[in-house]
């Protein structure tokens, strides 16, 4: 096994722990925006997709890359926008806001 993949495994395992720490603190109130927001984050595949689509590979590879860009962009744009739309609706009681 090569070093690069070992480092990748380290990063993966440590990031899972960070994920558990951060996400267990999100209250149930916000679990739906958490899901759509984290979904948008998983659209980070787009950076791989951009290279697949633009690196001047053979046609099939480029086509697959372009499909990947489309799917990942739907994820990123749709995910962040709908999360924002939801979070905008969460408001505190007006009376208390005025205080």
């Amino acid at each position: 096994m090569e070093d690069a993949i070992l480092v990748s495994i380290y990063v993966f395992v440590l990031a899972i722990f960070v994920g558990f720490e951060v996400i267990t603190k999100v209250p149930p109130l916000l679990h739906t925006p958490l899901m759509s927001g984290s979904n948008a984050i998983s659209g980070i595949t787009i950076v791989g997709a951009l290279i697949s689509a633009g690196a001047g590979h053979a046609l099939l590879s480029t086509v697959l890359g372009t499909l990947a860009v489309i799917c990942a962009t739907i994820n990123v744009v749709g995910g962040f926008m709908v999360t924002d739309r939801m979070l905008e609706m969460f408001k505190k009681d007006k009376k208390e806001e005025g205080k």
Binding site: I5, F12, I23, T45
Partner: peptide
Amino acid sequence: TGFVLSNNVLIISGALVGASGLIL
């Protein structure tokens, strides 16, 4: 996919989302 590309930001983000989904 991050493993395929040896790309750490994919691995980290993927792990975060993986953990989040699992907790939920």
